[in-house]
Each structure stands twice: as structure tokens, then as C-alpha cells.
């Protein structure tokens, strides 16, 4: 084993450019992947928070049967919960928030309509639900919480998709780089390999240094990626918490550790699989 390990190091030093290129794409891939995963994590966390807050409110025309409408609304699959709030209750709430409301009522009567308040399962659904509810008879006006939710969700989803796309491309780039590195390494020692074959070395024995090289590259890239990603993320998280405390930034190590660990593990896995594949293929080519 020490022999194979030494051979792997010799090969990596001998083909320094190929090794470096592989290491760099691999690290970049892992960084990008880590970035996208962490972004997704935080986006999901933020959306969850928004979801728990976003309400759709339907204001009923005077004389509408509130109970019947509530039943109808509860029939929508996207609606998680719905309740009927009478105009008196609304008035109560408003009074609690601003005591002057009571004075206004004495002048103009209760201006607040009976309201059906709904919570949706997913934020993205609020627009759909609002539109559907608005079409129901007896519904005057519909409001849904925070118009900002909609474009935000769409933008974040797009960023996430683009991120995964980029990660996919980078993964492919990494794989090609590994294939190339192994190929260069094997061609560099093709004389030795042909001697080994004549002496009765098994394929596994000949491939071993190259597989070790792949795994080693994976370990290195994973380590570099983590070394960059971890402090960068925590630094950024601190700043966000400071500047925009509304965002629920995830800093729980128990949540982050598996993600970061997974990124490193993926690096090692790519290194292993890529070099296994490449060494088999190029050994056949050399025969």
C-alpha cells in the first residue's frame, strides 16, 4: 500500500499541471455546490417563515353567508386553514392596535367587512388562492400578505435552479479533468505498465496508484472547499444577522455539518469513481 501511495504521489508531482487543473475544477465544483446547498437551506428556512406568516384575506360583501363561503374556501386543496372573522371581531382587533378606531366607529359605524382569513400551504400558492377566492360570489375584495413574497420566491427559485445547473456542468468538467489526469499519468508510465503486465501484475495492482491519486485529489479538493466555505459562510451569516435580522440565517452546526460533510464526501466519491473508470478505460487502451 505504501508503494501504491508513493507511486500516486510521484504521478501527481510528475503531471503537476494536470493535477492542478483537476484540483482547481474540483474545488470550484465543491465550492459552488456548497454555496447552492447553503443558499437553498436558507431560502427554504426563509420561505417557511414567510409561509407561517402569509395570509390571504377575503372581504365579504354585506349580506353574504360567511359560513357557507368558509366551507367553500376550506375545500381548496392549497388552503391549510381558514377562519371566519366577523366585522365586530375585526373592529376589536383594530381597536386593540389603534385606540382611535373606536372613535371613528361612533361617527361612521363599523366600516370593517366580515372577513375570511386563510393560510396557504406554500407561499407560491397565495396568488392562486387569492385569484380563486376573488371569483367566488359574495367576495368583494381580496388581499394577500406581502406582495413582495411572489417575486422573491420566483427569483430565489431561479437562482437555485441556475446554481444546480452550474454545479452539474462543473461536475462534468471535474470528471473530464480527472479522466485527463489519470490518462496523462498512465501514459507517462506506460513503459512501466507494460513491464508490469509482462511480469504478471494484475489490473487492480496497476490501477491502484491512479485510484489513490483520484481519491487523494478528492480529499484535497474537499478539504480546500471546506476551508474556504465554512469561514466564508459564518462570516456572511454574522453580517446578515447584523444588517438584516429578519432573515432566519441557519447557523446551527448540527444542520450545517451534514451539508458540509456531504460536499467533502462528494469530492472524494467523484475522485474515486472517476479514477476507477478512467484507469480501467486507459489500461485497456494501453494494451
Amino acid at each position: 500500500m505504501t508503494y501504491h501511495f508513493r507511486q500516486a504521489l510521484v504521478a501527481m508531482r510528475g503531471n503537476f499541471t494536470a493535477t492542478l487543473a483537476t484540483l482547481m475544477t474540483m474545488t470550484l465544483t465543491l465550492l459552488m455546490l456548497g454555496f447552492v446547498l447553503l443558499l437553498t437551506l436558507n431560502v427554504n428556512r426563509t420561505l417557511e417563515q414567510l409561509e407561517s406568516q402569509v395570509e390571504v384575506a377575503a372581504f365579504l360583501n354585506v349580506g353574504t353567508d360567511g359560513a357557507a363561503l368558509l366551507k367553500q374556501v376550506q375545500g381548496f386543496p392549497q388552503v391549510r386553514e381558514a377562519r371566519l372573522v366577523s366585522s365586530e371581531e375585526v373592529l376589536e382587533e383594530m381597536t386593540r392596535d389603534s385606540p382611535y378606531a373606536r372613535d371613528a366607529v361612533t361617527l361612521v359605524g363599523n366600516p370593517f367587512p366580515t372577513t375570511v382569513r386563510m393560510r396557504v400551504g406554500r407561499v407560491e400558492d397565495s396568488r392562486v388562492v387569492a385569484a380563486a377566492v376573488a371569483r367566488l360570489p359574495g367576495v368583494g375584495d381580496v388581499e394577500y400578505g406581502a406582495g413582495y413574497v411572489d417575486p422573491t420566491v420566483r427569483a430565489l427559485t431561479a437562482i437555485r435552479a441556475a446554481g444546480y445547473g452550474l454545479v452539474g456542468l462543473l461536475l462534468m468538467g471535474t470528471l473530464f479533468n480527472i479522466l485527463n489526469a489519470v490518462r496523462v499519468a498512465m501514459y507517462a508510465r506506460r513503459n512501466e505498465i507494460s513491464v508490469m503486465r509482462l511480469l504478471g501484475a494484475t489490473r487492480g495492482f496497476i490501477r491502484m496508484p491512479h485510484v489513490i491519486e483520484g481519491v487523494l485529489l478528492g480529499v484535497l479538493a474537499g478539504a480546500v472547499a471546506l476551508a474556504v466555505l465554512t469561514p466564508a459562510y459564518f462570516g456572511l451569516a454574522r453580517r446578515v444577522q447584523l444588517l438584516a435580522p429578519v432573515f432566519p440565517v441557519v447557523t446551527d452546526p448540527a444542520v450545517l455539518a451534514p451539508i458540509l460533510g456531504g460536499v467533502a464526501l462528494l469530492g472524494i466519491t467523484i475522485g474515486l469513481l472517476g479514477s476507477l473508470f478512467a484507469s480501467r478505460r486507459y489500461l485497456q487502451e494501453l494494451e
Binding site: R197, L198, L199, G200, A201, T202, R203, G204
Partner: peptide, 13 residues
């Protein structure tokens, strides 16, 4: 396949 190695071990070249 992989057993060629065993054959080669039985002969010097």
C-alpha cells in the same frame, strides 16, 4: 480476462 496475469506469472520474458 484478469487471469492473464496468472499466466504471465508462470513465465519469465
Amino acid at each position: 480476462g484478469g487471469r492473464t496475469a496468472l499466466l504471465r506469472r508462470r513465465m519469465g520474458t
